[in-house]
């Protein structure tokens, strides 16, 4: 197991370098960060030259990338559009997005799995058909539509919650945005659980559990659920990275100052350090989440052995 983890961590290095270089290349080579600083005005050539030199932009792309990576390792992600360091921007943005993601994951786990179990065990019944239709709607309607609709209904009309989240983003204000963020994944979790449960209810070992005279709740929880949730847990694990990166739309709708919001600002203002810095961290989160899922898989299913 230990060797497996080390090998996986080593494998991450080329993936990490490759993906960060790609982002770096796209942001730096395809835009002009200096021009962006001046907005509509044409920059004074001497000043522009000075800024280029300060930002290490007068070197080759490869050298720039090496320089950037070197700085990352000493914790310097450069300066954001508002003059703050990107690191301090991350320090304020990531906790907010992590809170939002936690809320979303909780929704996925509780509602998604519950709906999946109910529909999986009552296949073909009205509940099943109804929920299945609902998941189809949720999956096919874009998040910004459901987001604005729910914001309008619960935030503006019913006033159950604030339509826009305050800068400190406490948990209670993140419930509705968390739900919006979770919706599509929640629909997938429901379907995945449903299929998995339906498949396993006919499994021989479930029949054995019944034949042993175990009470129904024990058959369902210890035997049926324990097996059926393995693919679901894996899905939710991999979804962590996707949720954090995918929060851009949700954070825009509810004006949450998290990762998605800052990333959006960075792109809008063509601020390379912000974009590259945030994406780099997201890539890292994604890779680690995947490793964690693989390890979790081995814990949940003893037939899987990593060496």
């Amino acid at each position: 197991m230990g060797r497996y983890v080390i090998r996986r961590l080593l494998q991450m290095i080329p993936v990490f370098i490759g993906s960060t270089f790609l982002i770096f290349f796209m942001v730096y080579a395809l835009g002009d960060p200096v021009a962006a600083l001046f907005g509509d005005r044409a920059p004074d050539p001497a000043t522009a030259q000075q800024i280029r030199h300060d930002l290490y932009l007068d070197h080759s792309l490869g050298a720039q990338y090496l320089h950037y990576m070197k700085n990352i390792f000493i914790g310097d992600f450069g300066t954001a559009f508002n003059g703050e360091s990107v690191t301090s921007l991350m320090g304020s943005a990531f906790p907010v997005t992590i809170r939002l993601t936690i809320v979303a994951i909780i929704f996925e786990i509780i509602i998604g799995i519950a709906l999946g179990v109910v529909t999986g065990m009552r296949r073909g019944k009205p509940v099943d058909t109804g929920v299945l239709l609902l998941t189809l709607v949720v999956i096919s309607v874009p998040t910004f539509v459901t987001g604005y609709v729910l914001q309008y209904v619960f935030g503006v009309r019913l006033k159950w919650t604030a339509p826009s989240v305050s800068p400190s983003a406490p948990f209670n204000e993140l419930i509705l945005p968390g739900l919006v963020l979770a919706l599509v994944s929640l629909a997938y979790v429901t379907r995945l659980t449903r299929t998995s449960i339906a498949e396993n209810t006919r499994a021989d070992y479930v029949r054995t559990a019944v034949a042993k005279g175990l009470p129904r709740h024990r058959v369902i929880i210890r035997h049926l659920l324990r097996n059926s949730l393995i693919p679901v847990v894996t899905f939710i694990g991999t979804d962590i990275g996707a949720l954090m990166g995918g929060a851009i739309v949700t954070e825009r709708i509810f004006n949450i100052h998290g990762v998605g919001f800052q990333l959006y600002q960075g792109i809008l203002r063509n601020n390379a350090p912000t974009v590259v810095g945030f994406v780099t961290v997201l890539v890292l989160v994604f890779l680690l989440a995947n490793l964690l899922v693989d390890l979790l898989y081995a814990v949940l299913d003893p037939r899987i052995r990593y060496a």
Binding site: D204, Y205, R207, T208, A211, H223, R226, N227, R303
Partner: peptide, 14 residues
């Protein structure tokens, strides 16, 4: 009851 196929009749994860 004893079933035919013990591999599938025993719970694989317990």
């Amino acid at each position: 009851m004893i079933f035919q196929d013990a591999l599938s009749s025993l719970n694989p994860v317990l």
